[in-house]
Design a protein around this nucleic acid. Structure first.
Length: 417
DNA sequence: CTTCCACAGGAACCAGCGGACC
DNA sequence: GGTCCGCTGGTTCCTGTGGAAG
């Protein structure tokens, strides 16, 4: 079957599509290389992180002589350069080790993306060249294979566990405990663990035994200041954009906006990239402060839409319930939300979940920022949560109006305010 | 000071699923 | 083909609790 049979495109539309593709393929008036602004890009120079880079390098350098590096713990909020610095040091270390003829295994795993202990271990196995099926085995068996692989390879192994707090909060610290014990009875080589956490209070979740062996060394990443962000952005912008395209004021604004959100470099880079994309789409010649402001709105809106759309069905019903309750100006306690939720369920013809589950869903929605939930005590009148929407009502309306089942709850205009 | 509400949130468990192993 | 595994997304049962009212 030819492409035309699948996609019969009328003449006029075809030329429009062609134009879009041509424009896409043609030389950009804005970007030189937009990949430089993606957050998985690891630049050759990381401004204002020299101290952390050398700390981490010192900690891991014993592997150059074939012995085990220290375990380390890296703390810092999102977008403070933890991941970039670790990957940077890891990359350099692997290069150096190859150079001196003492190859190592370096494994970088993002625990939040991996999701479960099993998948973290599976990707560790993969990075030392041990095959494991993606499901079906006992976790203990996967661990066993990893251990055997480490012992057999005789190379030192460096394991970087990014967003380690996500793993521990969801599945406990068993995996970490097992990993720290892998070195027992191993002469030379062995496993060095670098844990990266966004959560500064993460330690509280750990068993003291794990904690003491894991935090042999600690590196703390302070948030970037607006000026530091400015330096970072300027450096990246010169590689990402064509000369003279981005105004200094636009970069300053990106830095300032991101700095007001705990100095998040990732956020700053996103702002700059999206601002550039907006400018490009409008065929503007320069990226201005106005583009940056609109980029901020766009990023926020898209984040919300993405989260709302991918919510499980009952979580959507809960969001609807809170939305409806806010319209009634009733106190949004868990009990009230549950009452409304049950009515919403009968309206759409599904069985409601238990209140216990809804309580859990409310917490999950709080964690992703769709709702704000705060435990309060009303004394004699019990202990409950105050629940509010964490995102603008307009956004919710817009997204759910497109939903076949839920649109019925968003028929009329919401009351102003 | 005691009582007591309206939940919070932990623990144990279950069903259904896709999949590995022998 | 039977038995094991982990994950997801639930349920049931339970104990814990901040602070206004009495």
């Amino acid at each position: 079957m030819s492409l035309h049979e699948v996609l019969p495109i009328p003449g006029s539309k075809e030329t429009i599509v062609d134009e879009i593709f041509e424009r896409f393929l043609g030389a950009s008036r804005i970007f030189r290389n937009r990949d430089v602004l993606r957050h998985d890009y690891v630049p050759d120079h990381l401004p204002h992180r020299e101290e952390q880079i050398s700390r981490l390098a010192v900690i891991l350098s014993p592997v150059l002589k074939g012995s085990r590096g220290s375990n380390a713990f890296i703390y810092g909020k999102t977008g403070t350069g933890k991941t970039a610095v670790s990957r940077f040091v890891l990359k350099k270390l692997v290069q150096k080790c190859d150079e001196v003829g003492r190859p190592i295994h370096a494994c970088y795993v993002n625990c939040r993306i991996a999701g479960t202990a099993y998948r973290v271990l599976a990707s560790l196995c993969e990075s030392i060249g041990v095959y494991v099926p993606f499901t079906g085995l006992a976790t203990g068996e996967v661990f066993h294979r990893f251990r055997r692989g480490v012992l057999a390879s005789k190379r030192p192994v460096i394991v970087v566990l990014d967003e380690i707090d996500a793993l521990v909060k969801a599945h406990g610290d068993d995996v970490l405990y097992e990993l720290t014990r892998i070195n027992e009875g191993v002469a030379g080589g062995g496993v060095a663990i670098v844990g990266i956490s966004n959560d500064l209070r993460f330690k509280e979740y750990l068993d003291p035994k794990v904690l003491s062996s894991l935090s042999e060394e600690e590196v703390v990443f302070r948030p970037y200041t607006a000026n530091e962000l400015y330096d970072i952005l300027t450096e990246r912008a010169s590689a990402a954009f064509l000369d003279g395209v981005v105004s200094d004021a636009a970069i300053r604004l990106c830095a300032a906006l991101a700095a007001s959100e705990h100095g998040d470099a990732r956020r700053a880079l996103d702002l700059l990239r999206v601002a550039g994309e907006i400018a490009e789409r409008e065929e503007a010649n320069r990226v201005t402060e106005d583009h940056v402001r609109r980029a901020q709105e766009k990023i926020e809106y898209e984040r919300v839409v993405e989260v709302l759309k991918t919510l499980p069905f009952h979580a959507k019903l809960v969001v609807c319930s809170v939305y409806l309750l806010e319209g009634l100006e009733k106190p949004t306690a868990t009990g009230n939300v549950y009452e409304v939720y049950k009515r919403v369920c009968s309206e759409v013809g599904v069985d409601p979940l238990t209140q216990r589950r809804i309580s859990g869903i409310i917490n999950e929605l709080d964690a992703v920022g769709v709702l704000n939930a705060r435990v309060i005590s009303m004394g004699r009148y019990g202990r409950t949560k105050h629940i509010g929407l964490g995102i603008p009502k307009l956004y919710i309306r817009r997204v759910f109006l497109e939903d076949e089942v839920l649109s019925r709850f968003f028929g009329e205009e919401p009351s102003p305010g």
